[in-house]
Simulated assay, not measured.
Amino acid sequence: MSKFELNRRSLLKTSAAGLLGLSAAGLPRMASAAGLTVGIVYVGPRDDFGWNQAHAVAAAALKEVPGVTVVEEENVPETIAVQKSMESMINLDGAELIFATSFGYYKPFVLDLAAKYPDVQFRHAAPLWTDADPKNAGSYFGYLDQAHYIDGVAAGLSTTTNKLGFVAAKPIGTVLRNINSFLLGAKKVNPNATVQVIFTGEWSMPVREAEAANALVDAGCDVLTCHVDGPKVVIETAEARGIKCCGHNASQAPLAPKGFITGAEYKWATIYKMFANDLTEGKTLPNFTGGGFDLDFVQSTPYGAGATEAAIAAADEARVAVKAGKPIFTGPINKQDGTPLLAAGASLDNYDPSLDQTDYLIEGVIGSIT
Rank of each mutant, 00 (worst) to 15 (best):
V320P: 00
I312R: 14
A307P: 10
A307S: 04
A314H: 11
A318Y: 00
D294Y: 01
A314R: 04
T301Q: 03
G304Q: 08
G291Y: 02
A313H: 08
A313M: 05
V320E: 12
A321K: 15
E309D: 15
G306N: 03
A307M: 10
A315E: 03
A310E: 14
V322S: 04
E309H: 00
R319V: 04
A307L: 03
A324N: 14
P302G: 11
A305Y: 03
D296G: 11
D296A: 09
D316N: 15
E317Y: 00
T308F: 06
T289Y: 11
G292W: 07
I312L: 02
V320Q: 12
G304R: 10
A314E: 14
T289H: 11
A321M: 09
R319D: 02
R319Q: 15
L295K: 06
A313Q: 10
F297V: 10
E317D: 15
A307T: 06
S300E: 13
D296T: 12
A307Y: 02
T289A: 13
A318P: 04
E317C: 08
P302E: 09
G306Y: 02
G304F: 14
G304D: 10
A313E: 12
A315V: 04
A324V: 03
D316Q: 13
G291Q: 03
V298F: 07
F297D: 02
D294P: 01
T289S: 14
T289Q: 12
V298A: 03
A313S: 13
D296Q: 14
V298R: 02
E317T: 14
G292Y: 10
E317I: 00
G291E: 07
A315C: 05
A307Q: 00
